[in-house]
Write a protein that binds this DNA or RNA. Structure first.
Length: 263
DNA sequence: GTTGAGCGTT
């Protein structure tokens, strides 16, 4: 009886699925069973896991036999610490039996007096606020999605995972990516041709100029080669450095003649 | 070994 969902969905005739989020990656159905079973009759517990890794995704589905018990478990286990982590319990909406929720409206089937009795305002707010802080900003694994994307060659097989990325897309555009480029572009606003290169943004590659090296100051000591060896033509690779004026050519040469050139 | 938004299998 410890294996849930191993044989597929047992019976979704009259079972109500609850979505448990924010659970640890080590939490298994066996750990959630005693917790949810205490508040009602749990028919089955299913925890989606990765096909390749086999690890839990961080959320589980608990199926109750009765809606009233499920509802109670939601309010009871919602915000409960499991395995040292606070879990989030709520009714599944995109599940196979989600239609029953809309038809029967089990969410509103219960008297409101129950809601009034329970004071879950502060707790719910804290959880929401905690997540609203900056979690979704850098969610997901370090390079899990990227790795997965590379493996699938940028083809999304699931789709639901991508939806999350879509939500975080605008956040980056407004918060980080766009703002940073905007500053650079604003700085170069004084120049005339600042719009062209700015539009490409990430395109670091620009027209190779024979007069100017792509990175004269970053080339030396590249592979352990001596700077002298670099100039096989006999001339110094950096004529500005040998300038009699004694200027070490800091970052860039604020020469008015180079103004017409990009950057 | 890690991580942290969300919605599921035979």
């Amino acid at each position: 009886m410890s294996h849930f969902g191993r044989s597929g969905p047992p019976d979704i005739t009259d079972t109500y699925s609850l979505l448990v989020l924010n659970i640890t990656f080590r939490t298994t159905a066996d750990d959630l069973f005693p917790l949810f079973d205490k508040y009602g009759k749990v028919v089955d517990i299913f925890i989606p896991r990765d096909r390749r890794s086999g690890d839990s995704r961080g959320f589980a589905f608990v199926r109750y036999k009765y809606a009233e018990e499920a509802q109670k478990a939601v309010e009871r286990l919602d915000g409960r610490a499991v395995d040292g982590r606070e879990i989030t319990v709520q009714f599944a909406k995109y599940g196979p039996n989600a239609e029953k929720i809309r038809k029967g409206r089990i969410v509103e089937s219960f008297p409101k007096s129950k809601y009034s009795s329970r004071s879950r305002s502060p707790r719910k707010r804290e959880r929401d606020d905690h997540r609203d802080r900056d979690y979704r900003r850098r969610s997901r694994s370090r390079s899990y999605d990227r790795h997965d994307r590379d493996r699938h060659h940028g083809r999304d097989k699931d789709g639901r995972r991508r939806s999350r990325s879509r939500s975080a897309s605008p956040d980056y555009s407004r918060g980080r990516g766009r703002g940073r480029y905007d500053e650079e572009r604003r700085s170069a606003s004084q120049s005339r041709d600042s719009a062209s290169p700015a539009r490409h943004g990430r395109s670091r590659r620009r027209s190779p100029s024979p007069r100017r090296s792509p990175s004269p100051r970053r080339t030396p000591l590249s592979r352990g080669e001596s700077p002298e060896k670099h100039g096989l033509n006999g001339h110094s690779p950096n004529p500005r450095s040998s300038s009699p004026r004694g200027q070490p050519a800091a970052s860039r040469s604020p020469s008015p003649r180079n103004s017409d050139v990009d950057e």
